[in-house]
Amino acid sequence: MERSIALIAVFAALIAALGLMPTLMLASGVPISAQSLGVMLCGTVLGSKRGGLAALLFVALVALGLPLLAGGRGGLGAFASPTVGFIVGFPIAAFATGFVMEQTRRMPIAVAAGVASAIGGIVVLYIFGVAGFMMVLNKGLGETLAILGVYIPGDIIKVVLAGLITAGLARARPASVLSRA
């Protein structure tokens, strides 16, 4: 139990730390950051439940006002920004990534982590991100997809990184990849 709580806290901190990396704010109001890589790793390493809880803890800390989002943003105002869908989608995306990872035990870990990250960290996260963007900025689906499509190449790089990092962790410390335990 204590180990799970500690890992959830560590991975919430990982998502926060990835927000400290230099970010690029585009005109859309959605920054290019590495935080979605942290969400992917929550699922691929911790599994669905712990990964979802780690991302949920991160979102709760942001809601409490901690400036943990890319660019040092935090507080309830972040939930009125164009990124609201992505923020709210973090726990669901981490859960979905972990769920897919747990269902693909027969695949090599790097491939499974890549597939899980693509499904949870891109498809699921973008469902929420696109919906939030459309609601906050009153944009249509086509216009929103055109604006947010710029982020997909970077997210594909994050999928590859999540696969490689998870596979490397599994080689170094197999018991630490809880999504495969």
Rank of each mutant, 00 (worst) to 15 (best):
M1F: 11
M1I: 08
E2N: 14
R3G: 13
R3C: 03
R3N: 14
S4F: 10
S4V: 03
A6V: 15
V10N: 03
V10I: 15
A12H: 09
I15D: 06
I15P: 10
I15N: 14
A16W: 02
L18N: 04
L18R: 07
L18P: 07
G19T: 04
G19P: 13
M21D: 04
T23H: 04
L24D: 00
M25E: 13
G29A: 06
P31F: 01
I32H: 00
S33Y: 04
A34P: 03
Q35C: 08
Q35W: 10
Q35L: 09
L37W: 06
L37K: 06
L37V: 04
G38A: 02
V39Q: 01
M40L: 08
L41F: 03
C42Y: 03
G43M: 00
T44G: 01
V45K: 08
L46V: 12
S48A: 15
G51S: 06
G52L: 08
L53T: 10
A54M: 09
A55Y: 01
L56H: 11
L57W: 07
L57A: 13
F58T: 00
A63Q: 06
A63L: 09
A63P: 01
L64M: 15
G65A: 02
G65L: 04
P67Y: 07
L69M: 14
A70S: 08
A70K: 00
A70F: 03
G71M: 08
G72H: 02
R73G: 15
G74K: 06
G74V: 03
S81A: 15
T83W: 00
F90R: 14
A94M: 00
T97G: 12
M101N: 08
E102R: 14
Q103E: 10
Q103H: 13
T104W: 12
R105W: 05
R105P: 08
R105H: 12
R106S: 14
M107Y: 14
P108E: 13
P108M: 10
I109F: 02
A110H: 13
A112Q: 11
A112T: 10
A113R: 10
G114T: 05
G114M: 13
V115M: 08
V115T: 13
A116W: 00
G120Y: 06
G120K: 12
I122N: 04
V123Y: 05
Y126Q: 07
F128N: 06
G129Y: 09
G132M: 02
V136I: 15
L141A: 14
E143D: 11
T144D: 02
L145Q: 03
L145N: 02
L145K: 02
L148R: 03
Y151E: 02
P153R: 04
P153E: 11
D155Q: 04
I156Y: 08
I156V: 15
I157D: 00
K158I: 00
K158M: 07
V159K: 05
L161M: 14
A162S: 13
L164C: 09
I165S: 03
T166M: 10
G168T: 12
A170W: 11
A170M: 12
A172N: 05
R173F: 13
P174G: 12
A175Y: 01
V177N: 06
R180L: 12
